[in-house]
């Protein structure tokens, strides 16, 4: 598959009063054209910061991308100036966020907000742009789009707002859509609607999606490949069937095992298998593998040296157990 986006050795750090937070600490993965890649991991593992880094909108200060390359269609986004980046954002790479209420501007009608994207990137006039907005609202399945364009965000339900966000993101038919927990704030039934919508739009526009979530169910349903992150590093990467059938990193295994009701028949009334302990503080990472403090399979070297990525059976795994 042709690589649309490739991230090489990315490091984004936050420089705080009490130390440097290595929110992303050497990240390598790629997304193919038209592919959906899931990024999963616990809270604080650096998923959102990865998205912000790609978009070039890491809050600075205190944050800064200090190392690495973000190759989009072969050229390094980190070398782009502000104007070049502005042209990429929204047009080539679009992003939707978790909270559809705070990411929409409450004082403008949703029509105007979608139209703005058309006017910024498509060079359209205002009436044309509003036409476009109505069309996009239709695409994302909002009933009565002619009426709805004139409404304000607070007049819409959460699910509708997220549809508006999707409409905005897709209005310039981006090649890559970064969706940061797009359905976490929504109910299951609305989540199912939204995911179905995203899947159908992906086929229609042939775009790639980087789907950030902590819900492994969504990953299983939507993605072709998965990147598992832990404390700023990628721990495992594999195709989705393979990852669920044969997780190789102890962390991935732990995540899958701690899910209730994965295997209905066998697991009834059984205790869940939790991962002990808590995520380490990024200001005070353990020596060696960052998962070693919680890993029940760790061996001597794990607490001494950080493991590199090992390639095995089309998985890439950051674990010493994979070495031999």
């Amino acid at each position: 598959m042709e690589k649309l986006l490739e991230i090489v050795g990315l490091k984004t750090h936050f420089f705080l009063d009490n130390g440097v937070v290595p929110a992303i600490d050497g990240l390598d993965f790629w997304i193919g054209r038209g592919e959906t890649v899931g990024v999963v991991g616990e809270s604080g593992s650096g998923k959102s910061v990865t998205a912000l880094s790609i978009m070039g909108v890491v809050p600075n200060p205190p944050g800064k991308t200090v190392e690495g390359e973000i190759l989009f269609e072969g050229s390094d986004l980190l070398a782009y100036d502000a104007e070049q980046m502005r042209r990429i954002r929204g047009k080539e790479i679009a992003m939707i966020l978790q909270d559809p209420m705070t990411s929409l501007n409450p004082v403008f009608t949703i029509g105007n907000q979608i139209a703005e994207v058309f006017m910024l990137h498509g060079g359209k006039s205002h009436p044309e742009a509003i036409e476009g907005a109505i069309e996009m609202l239709q695409v994302v399945g909002i009933p009565n789009p002619e009426k709805r364009v004139h409404e304000y965000p607070h007049q819409l339900s959460g699910g509708m707002r997220q549809r508006v966000m999707i409409a905005m993101a897709l209005s310039c038919t981006p090649k890559l859509l970064i969706a940061d927990e797009p359905t976490t704030a929504l109910d299951v039934t609305i989540q199912a609607q939204t995911l179905a919508l995203m899947a159908s739009l992906k086929d229609r526009y042939k775009m790639a999606i980087m789907l950030i979530t902590h819900n492994l169910g969504i990953v299983a349903e939507m993605c072709q490949r998965v990147v598992v992150m832990y404390a700023g590093k990628m721990m495992e990467e594999a195709e989705v069937e393979s990852l669920f059938a044969n997780p190789m990193h102890p962390y991935t295994r732990g995540l899958l095992r701690s899910l209730p009701g994965v295997d209905r028949k066998e697991r009834r009334h059984q205790r869940l298998v939790a991962i002990p302990g808590i995520v380490p503080n990024l200001l005070n990472l353990p020596k060696g593998c960052r998962f070693s403090t919680r890993c029940e399979e760790h061996i001597g070297i794990c607490k001494e040296e950080e493991p590199p990525l090992f390639a095995r059976d089309r998985h890439r795994v950051r674990c010493w157990l994979m070495k031999d």
Binding site: T189, G217, I218, E241, F244, L256
Partner: peptide, 11 residues
């Protein structure tokens, strides 16, 4: 509701 919940099993 039951069918809406995503199943953590790609197969």
């Amino acid at each position: 509701l039951l069918t809406a919940a995503p199943v953590p099993d790609p197969t």
